[in-house]
Simulated assay, not measured.
Amino acid sequence: MERIFTYEALPETARLFWEKFSAATVFAFDGQMGAGKTTFIKALCAAKQVADVTSSPTFSIINEYHYASPAGHDQCIYHLDLYRLRNEQEALDAGVEDCLYSGGICFVEWPGIIANLLPPDTVLVQLEAMPDQKRLLRAGPAFRK
Rank of each mutant, 00 (worst) to 15 (best):
C106P: 04
Q89W: 10
A94S: 12
L85Q: 02
W110S: 06
M1I: 14
A28Q: 04
V123A: 06
F40N: 01
G112E: 14
T25K: 12
D52E: 03
L92K: 10
K145C: 11
L85D: 03
V125L: 09
P57H: 09
G104A: 11
A68I: 00
D121W: 04
A129N: 11
M130W: 07
A115I: 05
T13S: 13
Q75W: 06
G34V: 08
K48N: 13
Y78M: 05
G36W: 07
T39M: 10
T54I: 03
R138P: 09
A91H: 10
L136E: 13
A91D: 15
I113V: 15
P141G: 08
P57E: 11
I62L: 07
L117P: 09
G140K: 07
A71D: 14
L124R: 11
A94V: 08
I113Y: 05
E128R: 07
E97P: 05
G36I: 12
A43P: 06
L16K: 01
H66S: 09
E109N: 09
I62C: 07
P70C: 04
W18N: 07
E88K: 06
A43N: 03
R144S: 15
Y65F: 11
T54N: 00
A68Y: 02
I105D: 05
E88G: 02
E109K: 04
T39F: 07
A139F: 10
A35M: 05
L92T: 13
Y101A: 08
P119L: 09
T54V: 15
G104C: 04
A68V: 00
P120I: 00
I62W: 06
P11Y: 02
F107N: 03
G112K: 04
G95Y: 05
D121P: 05
H73D: 14
A68W: 01
L92V: 15
A23S: 14
A14Q: 11
H79E: 03
K134A: 14
P70Q: 05
R138Q: 15
A9Q: 15
L100R: 02
A94D: 13
S55V: 03
A47F: 00
L118F: 00
L127N: 10
